[in-house]
Write a protein that binds this DNA or RNA. Structure first.
Length: 219
DNA sequence: GGCTGATCATAG
DNA sequence: CTATGATCAGCC
């Protein structure tokens, strides 16, 4: 699709200033009146517009470029409205995974952030795409992420997954990631035995993405 | 009002 | 079930 990252960025920049209604019309898809039942709709619209590999394939959105695409919902004052999901957390057979080989590290190594402005109660169609930017973690940011990841993974390995709350981690947090409370997966329990627990995912705190915005746009 | 824990849709 | 895309909603 794209020969290089510059071509991708050029395409992404063309989206800036468009409302979601305009982009949906260009893509020929119908807008939902609410995201309540289609929480990922905006992300999927942006994927479609940029020609990202659709579907549920693991790894990055543009594997040939090594780029992960993330939409970032912002209130009209420019502050992130939500945390950013990164990936599911491995709760079993994770002893051999290091930060360098982790999915979090891989996904966050290069991210194309696409901001979407709009307050929560604002009609989906009137929300506006902002200026995208490409992000590589700085050494300092990477250190923070790594430390959070290592602490969380150690607790998981020690069988303490159920004692990890979303309060843990400065930039990266662990939260449930599932269809509902009934979905279960295996994890290491307190006695070193297997337990059933809710699947968890890694998320970037909105305070962290807010800092990224500040650094990028000098806010 | 921000944040944590819970939840929604879809593909394979 | 796990993966993708995330936001909802009630508690503090």
């Amino acid at each position: 699709m794209y020969q290089n990252i510059d071509e991708l960025m050029q395409a992404a920049n063309q989206l800036a200033g468009l409302t979601l209604a305009e982009l949906a019309e260009r893509c020929g898809i119908i807008m939902p009146s609410s995201l309540r039942r289609e929480k990922g709709w905006i992300g999927q619209l942006i994927e479609l517009a940029l020609g990202a590999s659709a579907g549920s394939k693991p790894q990055q959105d543009f594997p040939e470029l090594g780029v992960e695409l993330k939409t970032l919902p912002l209130a009209n004052n420019g502050i992130p409205l939500e945390s950013t999901f990164v990936c599911t957390a491995p709760l079993l057979r994770q002893q051999h995974i290091s930060w360098e080989t982790s999915n979090v590290h891989h996904k966050l190594s290069t991210v194309l952030w696409v901001p979407v402005f709009g307050d929560r109660q604002q009609d989906i169609g009137t929300r506006m795409i902002g200026t995208p930017w490409l992000w590589h973690p700085t050494a300092e940011q990477e250190q923070i992420l790594r430390q959070d990841w290592e602490e969380i993974m150690e607790l998981i390995a020690l069988g303490k997954v159920e004692s990890i709350s979303a309060r843990h981690g400065d930039a990266l947090q662990l939260r449930p990631k599932a269809a509902n409370g009934r979905s279960l997966t295996q994890a290491i329990g307190s006695e070193g035995t297997l337990i059933q627990t809710r699947p968890r995912g890694f998320y970037l705190r909105s305070t962290f993405t807010r800092q990224l915005l500040r650094l990028q746009f000098h806010l």
